[in-house]
Amino acid sequence: MGLFNVFDVAGSAMNAQTVRLNTISSNLANADSVSGNPAQVYKAKSPVFETLLQQAVDKNSVGVRVKEIMESTAAPLVRYEPNHPLADAEGNIYSPNINTVEEMANMMSASRSYQNNVEVFNTSKQLLMRTISLGR
């Protein structure tokens, strides 16, 4: 009912943005995780967002959820390093195809979206508190 729905909506969005921040941090952390086998290389993950239409009581206040986490299909980068302990028979090692600049930009976008929702949450809280104390 009314302003109480805003808390659910903003909360679901903060949750979704947290998942996004989590995937970005694993991508950045594993940007240099090399492997001797191209099939075992870490693959960049990214969440797919979806509007929560089914569970909404009122279709005008809809939250958001993470539908799935996609794995990048980009081919791993190949480096010729025969002295590397993980190198395969041909002397190659494979590292994930992660663009750190892209991930950093994505991180800033996620954190701004999170902040937006915190702001919405706070404003709605203030409005509700003022409504509750009406007539005192």
Binding site: G2, L3, N5, V6, V9, A10, S12, A13, A16, Q17, R20, F49, E50, T51, D58, N60, S61, V62, G63, V64, S109, A110, S113, N116, N117, V120, S124, L127
Partner: peptide
């Protein structure tokens, strides 16, 4: 109050 809900949904779904 209802408009607040609608606008909050828009902001929540800014990346959907």
């Amino acid at each position: 109050a209802q408009r607040t809900e609608v606008l909050a949904s828009n902001l929540a779904n800014a990346d959907t």
